[in-house]
Amino acid sequence: MAQGHAPVLEVQDLRTYFYTRTGVVKAVDGVSFSLKEGETLGVVGESGSGKSMTALSIMGLVPQPAGKIVGGKVLLEGEDLLQKTPAEMQHIRGQKLCMILQDPMTSLNPVYTVGNQLIETLRLKPGNRGRGIKERAIELLSKVKIAAPEARIGNYPHQMSGGMRQRVVGAIAIAGAPKVLIADEATTSLDATIQYQYLQLLRELQEDTGLSIIFITHDFGIVAKMCDRVAVMYAGRLVELAPVRELFNKPAHPYTEALMRSVPNVDEEVDHLYAIEGQPPALDKLPTGCSFAPRCPYAFERCVQEYPSSVTVGESHYAHCWKLL
């Protein structure tokens, strides 16, 4: 995969909080990472770890008014997206940034044909008018490998299978030739063989266009197959960031290590799975110190008292854990 030097997207110390009756929920609390051109970053975590909220913060789609981005920067090609007006963001979404969500049934409009929805996105680009636009839509559908795109363009979403619908979502996403694609659990609802086809397709699209992809997932398998680098999130914070091989060979953070050991394996027989005791903490009642400390087998006094700073473990491999000092 061709990788440029300057990061396309840079997230610095992003904080997204929710103000609720019961208190402040720190959904994203100081997340930083960068994404190079043509690179695939995996963001792994369990539900409530803040991975989806990180994505929505980048897209400028944090639920209002409860949610608020209270700090940090999101730099897309050097421009801070958090300073943009909603109208400007609307323009950036679909052109430079785009997102594929988990369930294609809810992300497509059921009362418009897929052709309509594709053309709507194509029209966003100034100068994209007139007769050529339908051909362009058909071309996009064939790019995501939908058979007989000329006929399919007139279909409604319900006339398609789940895998095909997700392909349409993919076609809409790449319609504006974006720089960054965020795939939020994009293949979770697909069947195994269809998921495999879809991942393969995203790979090809990336090779063709030099797209940078952020894969938000709970599945280490997708990370192993697709990603160049991985960010592991726990309770709103990024706990480890590493190149993919490095992470699988030498997971540094106890959470990453435990999570990997608790996933069953197709490739070999496992006698007993390691299980992480307890559950992730509630985000409005985070413990002081490291949020993983209550479940961590290595926790000692310092872990309960203060949140660990970033420790460099290896080349571009960082983790937040006192044990590593």
């Binding site: 495999y196 086809q197 192993a224 197959k225 091989r245």
Partner: peptide, 25 residues
């Protein structure tokens, strides 16, 4: 075979025999 090949690897170094099924069920 295709199902096992489509199941995601447990490590980035695992290369599977590539059996991509065309079409859908």
């Amino acid at each position: 075979k295709a199902l096992i090949s489509a199941s995601l690897p447990s490590h980035p170094d695992i290369q599977r025999e590539d059996i991509v099924l065309s079409g859908e069920i």
